Simulated assay, not measured.
Amino acid sequence: MASHTDSVPAVRYLAVTFDCADPAELARFYSEALGLPVALSTDGFVLVGREGSPGLGFYRVDDYRRPTWPDSSVPKQAHLDLGVDDLDAAEARLVALGAVTADVQPLPDRRRILLDPAGHPFCITL
């Protein structure tokens, strides 16, 4: 096994980036939901997160198509799993911020599946 030396480039995790039609709107949702500040904003890209920590990025795609999960005709590209202490309270807060509760809920007593404003599924889990 190779050891880390100056000749081996360091690789670090910076962010997960989601495609969407409106980066500012999706960044607003996750910024408020997770209590993260906007770290960078351009017309086509917004990054939320704290300096020195991984963040979430949102990239404008002109022909963006919302995922149709659980139907796979337009597949989900990724999803987040967020930990919460109270499923009902967290779900109500996220819906108030613009999320939608998914129709399919396989484990509603332990996990809730929601869709962010751009249609990406994400889970809140005890």
Rank of each mutant, 00 (worst) to 15 (best):
R110E: 15
A10E: 08
L80T: 07
V48N: 03
S3C: 07
M1R: 10
P117K: 04
A92Q: 12
P54C: 06
L56S: 03
L34D: 04
V38E: 07
R111G: 01
S41W: 08
V11D: 00
R60Y: 04
S72G: 00
G52W: 04
V74K: 01
R111D: 04
F18C: 01
A92V: 02
A89Q: 13
R112I: 07
G57I: 03
A118Q: 05
G52S: 09
V84N: 05
R60K: 14
P75E: 08
D22T: 10
F18A: 02
A39L: 13
A90N: 02
R110K: 12
A10V: 11
P108G: 00
K76M: 15
A92G: 01
F29Q: 01
V74P: 00
D81K: 09
A96S: 14
L97H: 11
W69H: 13
D109E: 15
L56G: 03
P121Y: 08
A24I: 03
Q77V: 02
S7A: 15
T101C: 12
V11H: 04
V104T: 13
H4Q: 14
G57E: 00
L26W: 08
P106N: 03
A78E: 06
P67E: 08
V38K: 11
S73M: 00
V74T: 12
D109L: 14
P70Y: 02
F122N: 00
G52P: 03
R12H: 10
S53V: 02
R66C: 12
R93P: 07
P117L: 04
S3E: 14
D116V: 14
A89S: 14
P108D: 10
Q77H: 08
P75G: 09
G119I: 03
G57L: 03
G52C: 05
Y64M: 04
V8C: 09
D63S: 06
G44N: 13
V48F: 05
T42A: 10
D62N: 13
M1I: 09
S3H: 14
Y13K: 00
L115Q: 07
D116R: 05
M1T: 10
E32N: 10
F122P: 00
D19G: 03
T42K: 14
R93M: 05
I113G: 01
L114S: 01
P121K: 09
V16Q: 11
Y59A: 11
